[in-house]
Design a protein around this nucleic acid. Sequence first.
RNA 1: GACCCUGUAGCUCAGCAGGAUAGAGCAACUGCCUCCUAAGCAGUAGGUCGGAGGUUCAAAUCCUCUCAGGGUCGCCA
Length: 580
Amino acid sequence: MGAFCVFAPNNQMIEGGRGMRIKEEFAHVIKQQLEGQWDRRKIEWMIEKPKHEHMGDLAFPCFELAKAFRKSPKMIAEELSEKISASFIEKVEAIGGYVNVFLNREMITTEVMAEILAAQENYGKAIFGNGKVITVDFSSPNIAKPFSMGHLRSTVIGHSLSLIAEKCGYNPVKINHIGDWGTQFGKLITAYRLWGDEETVKKEPIKELLKLYVQFHEEAKENPDLEEQGRNWFKKLEEGHEEAISLWTWFRDESLKEFGKIYDKLGITFDSQAGEAFYNDKMKRVVELLEYKGVLVESEGAKVVPFEGMPPCLIKKRDGSTLYATRDLAAAMYRQKKYGFAKSLYVVGSEQSLHFKQLFAVLRKIGCEWEQGMAHVPFGMMLKDGKKMSTRKGKVVLLDEVLEEAVYQAMKNINDKNPHLEDKEEVARHVGTGAVIFHDLKHFRLHDVEFSLEDMLTFEGETGPYIQYTHARASSLLRKGRFNDSQQYTSAMEDSSAWPVVVSLMQFPDVIKRSFDAYDPSQVAKYVVELARAFNHYYGSVRILDDPEQIQSRLSLVHSVKIVLKEGLRLLGMEAPEKM
RNA sequence: GACCCUGUAGCUCAGCAGGAUAGAGCAACUGCCUCCUAAGCAGUAGGUCGGAGGUUCAAAUCCUCUCAGGGUCGCCA
């Protein structure tokens, strides 16, 4: 058992969420009936959730036992189901080789609600992270390039993972490894000196710089000499050439200003914005170290670390300037020294998988044991018309414009549906950006996503606004019903549609853990949809505020839902408006 | 050519530590606001789980082959 815990009503830490513990207890009950031949962990492993509600809440398949017992699964299930009993079990049924149990709803409901209402936003918090540092490298846009939809993925996934890690007891360090170094800046400087104009750039820096960058690549097709010039200017930059440095600084400052605005809109902050240039003076020692360790060899004029069964990792170019890998090595070592991380995540597109494999392999080769804690968290591309968006060709969709449009649409909806809402602007911002964030996070990381403004700005169905709306509904009920937090909640929850809500609430801690283990925020996103759906169904079938007898216990459930939805949204980096 | 990822409903996707009738959401069609926010709920329709073998009591899920799309494979990041 790991140190996975949640707060219990009496503030003690209990292992696992209620759902997990029930599974353990059920496994224990079965084991007792199996005369000790079967390991409890194995049994727990076998227990599953029935596909349909009428089959109960937990199921134990008996097919594997058939050989050992020399009986049919059906018979085993029937025998077992007659012997099984426990306080948390209401009813047991044997159906075609399965032992299906129906939980004691009253008991579980009371427990789960008590747990949530006592823990509040700490519900689902785990401590297995033990305060250890986890660095999360994400977003990392390139300066002098616009913040495109392509960067959204890394940004929102990384941000959410940091929050989830924190929820699991880690101490996350959010790092924005700004792309402010590399041959591209040589190219940009070349382009600016040839065609640039100071006034125009000052007016609209990013737009103009992008134009120059695109122009460079167009002209370079005709005139390959430009590439050489670009490399030369980067060399000068690395050597501290005055004009190069001053242009670079200017481009960088303008870009950071723009990025800052985006992060404000998304509600994201970083603990470090040390970009690639920050490691400029730390690379010499890296190269020396590699040389000292004897892993560096010369090949075709460049310096590389060779591998078996994998292409070599280039450390130094023919002209002596450094590469991406060199800087990432320097950064990794620096971060280990500065933060002493136990884990270090890189939320970077899957097209860079080889790079990270090489990076980790180099570290292993020179004996850095902490390399064990490092992981590349890859994700698929944002596609436009089935193709990769390319900055060079100027075919990008700007995140800022999408966010603006989303907020505008949200405002339109508010004016339409709730025109007297106070703080309209703020709510529209939360809903609009929430829609964009959620649209990205609900997809499994590794899948490519086709950019569709239409999908992103849909506020119905499995969307961010749907969750937020559900949260607002719950909040409204609590206000209208004058829910009293301190009041004793009875468990007279006869409404059958409340049960799926409780089952869902109970799973939250396990979802968080799974989501962290797989570095996959989409599990939280999907979970939150499921909870919202269950709640909306409940809402539609029960008049929550009508019966004075039941109102407080019903509102306890509503409040539990509100707490979990809000916390789930927070973990995704989204706001949960009280009204919308 | 080698390696990696992906292929499930018209579209976008869940499900993939093997398990009971393959699920949502959009779009289409039907209902539900004198009633707690209709950004909602209920229902209808829609599927050879890319294809072929294999392992297994059981395969969308694991293995092999195959087809299709994408990515990566030395001086970009």
